[in-house]
Amino acid sequence: MSSPGIQSLKDLSRLREAPSLDQSTAEQLLQELEVALSQSSWFTIGVMAPSADQALSSLRSVEASQQWTSLEVVETTTDEGPVFLKANQRGGTVRVRIEHGLGSGILISGHGDDDTQPATTWGPFPLDFFG
């Protein structure tokens, strides 16, 4: 299965929902992402998912693949429905809230230690991209 129109991280930025990716495209994007991530000091991660459990599972797969310390969930929901998860490495926290009308996928934003490095966001990646 091919991933038409997706050849670089930049191609993902125009999407509202994570695309299905073939293995070759996923590997290429992961290599490009690794280089991009190495240029940032810390990260925020946004996960748009059908449930809180799925969002947290996707976050944990990002943390494991990048060998990041697991962040602490300080706010979540027990309601059923689509969620937005926001994880912040600098604060060490994760917040999950019900949010309707979003697509599905993982967004990662790289940040610098000061204003000289603007934040850059990559994605959306499929929820199982890092798994």
Rank of each mutant, 00 (worst) to 15 (best):
2 S>V: 06
2 S>W: 02
3 S>N: 01
5 G>L: 00
6 I>D: 00
7 Q>L: 06
8 S>K: 03
9 L>M: 11
10 K>E: 14
15 L>E: 03
16 R>A: 08
19 P>A: 09
19 P>T: 03
22 D>T: 01
22 D>P: 05
26 A>F: 04
27 E>Y: 01
27 E>V: 00
32 E>A: 15
33 L>S: 02
34 E>M: 04
35 V>L: 13
35 V>A: 05
36 A>Q: 13
36 A>V: 15
36 A>Y: 00
36 A>G: 08
36 A>P: 09
37 L>D: 06
37 L>P: 06
37 L>W: 03
38 S>I: 01
38 S>E: 13
39 Q>F: 07
39 Q>R: 15
44 T>Y: 00
45 I>L: 13
47 V>N: 04
48 M>K: 07
49 A>G: 07
50 P>W: 05
52 A>S: 14
53 D>C: 00
53 D>N: 06
55 A>R: 12
55 A>G: 15
58 S>A: 15
59 L>Q: 09
60 R>M: 03
60 R>I: 08
60 R>A: 06
63 E>P: 04
70 S>M: 05
70 S>I: 00
72 E>L: 13
73 V>N: 09
73 V>H: 10
73 V>A: 10
74 V>N: 01
74 V>T: 15
78 T>S: 13
78 T>K: 11
78 T>L: 06
80 E>M: 07
80 E>W: 08
80 E>R: 10
83 V>K: 08
85 L>A: 09
87 A>R: 09
87 A>L: 04
89 Q>P: 05
90 R>I: 02
93 T>L: 14
93 T>V: 12
96 V>M: 05
97 R>T: 14
98 I>V: 14
98 I>P: 03
99 E>Y: 13
100 H>C: 02
100 H>W: 10
102 L>Y: 01
102 L>V: 07
106 I>V: 12
107 L>F: 14
107 L>W: 15
109 S>A: 12
110 G>Y: 09
111 H>K: 07
113 D>Q: 07
113 D>R: 15
113 D>I: 10
114 D>F: 13
117 Q>K: 14
119 A>T: 11
121 T>Y: 04
123 G>H: 04
124 P>T: 10
125 F>E: 11
126 P>W: 05
126 P>S: 00
